[in-house]
Write a protein that binds this DNA or RNA. Structure first.
Lengths: 181, 181
DNA sequence: AGGAGTCTGTAGCGCTTGCTACACGGAAAC
DNA sequence: GTTTCCGTGTAGCAAGCGCTACAGACTCCT
């Protein structure tokens, strides 16, 4: 029945595509509207304001990404740290790492300065990822599993950052080195 | 003799301060000019355009930061991985980590999308940091020292990112965990 | 048939952005 | 003493931003 909600939903999907392709800097209302096949006027009819629109769209992107990870390493499976890192890195790499990486850095940069809705959403994403990591990690006995998951997550995020600034080769070599040690 | 170069130099210092305080999003010509005690008109007299201005200012920030690191761990000293990580993290934390962290994430985000001058400068910074890490790292025998340095750098960058998105506690715990393992 | 509420296009407001045109005072060179 | 260049203020341009006012079309209820 509700036409508006349907179109809103469709817009979210198309805007998520656009966001992944262009990143936050390319996410003006007019550009997003063009991507969604609508007018900026209509976007602001579907959503209260840009913040609400961005929150919904970023949430959608996060959902997609967590689906990629779940598909790569299914619930119930547990791996030791180095293997898990390698597996996650491999999964991201084969699902076209780049777009998500760029968007995530944009988001993190905004979050760092406390910008909303970036701060809230980035927090949620990193918490979810942390929990996911802990649920997939075969913990080494004798130290805190949460801290181990945190360390693994940090390393992965750092690899992402290295790749983003054009040092993907360094990141690849690091993954290998960590796999041996 | 050269009045212009003197003022240009002074402007760089003050703009570096401003950049650390406000990050890239707060770096409009008018805002930078106010911080430097000049007019935007004059900034564009000292520098060809905003790109040149930003390149000079970001370079200055990087210079300051590497001075902090050199002071914390002097040339010639070598530490094993976990200790080095702890030392670097401690040095950054005690020198007011926050401003540099934010700026670095802004820069990395821009670099990821290929924006100039961010891409070039971020590349230079990460290369310098990589080299610095390798020069301070007591390498474990049997695997590539460069890759070990890369892995350590990745972890550190990831910790920075975790702290930026408001999970500094997770980062601290991870540093501890890595210190034990 | 008429009024009410739901959609949507047009047009534009007020603001910020990087950058520029122009004019003018002073100092230096000849 | 004139010319030439350096340094600087004023004022403004074109483009982009998020957002809104307004009006018309369409659908539904009575």
């Amino acid at each position: 029945m509700n036409v508006r909600d349907d179109r809103r939903e469709a817009a979210i999907e198309k805007m998520a595509d656009h966001l992944l392709k262009e990143g936050l800097p390319g996410a003006s209302l007019r550009a997003l509207a063009a991507a969604a096949g609508a007018s900026d006027r209509m976007l602001l009819y579907y959503f209260a304001d840009k913040d609400e629109l961005m929150a919904a769209t970023l949430e959608r992107v996060a959902l997609r990404q967590s689906a990629v990870l779940d598909a790569a390493i299914q619930p119930g499976v547990r791996l030791p740290g180095p293997s898990l890192l390698k597996a996650v890195w491999g999964a991201m790499a084969s699902s076209d790492l780049q777009p998500f990486m760029h968007l995530w850095l944009d988001l993190a940069a905004g979050a760092g300065r406390g910008v909303e809705p970036h701060r809230t959403i980035a927090g949620r994403i990193v918490d979810a990822f942390l929990q996911w990591t802990q649920s997939r990690l075969e913990p080494e006995p004798g130290s805190d599993p949460a801290a181990q998951a945190g360390a693994l997550l940090a390393t992965f995020e750092g690899l992402l950052l290295l790749a983003a600034v054009g040092r993907r080769d360094v990141a690849e070599a690091a993954v290998e080195a960590l796999g041996e040690g």
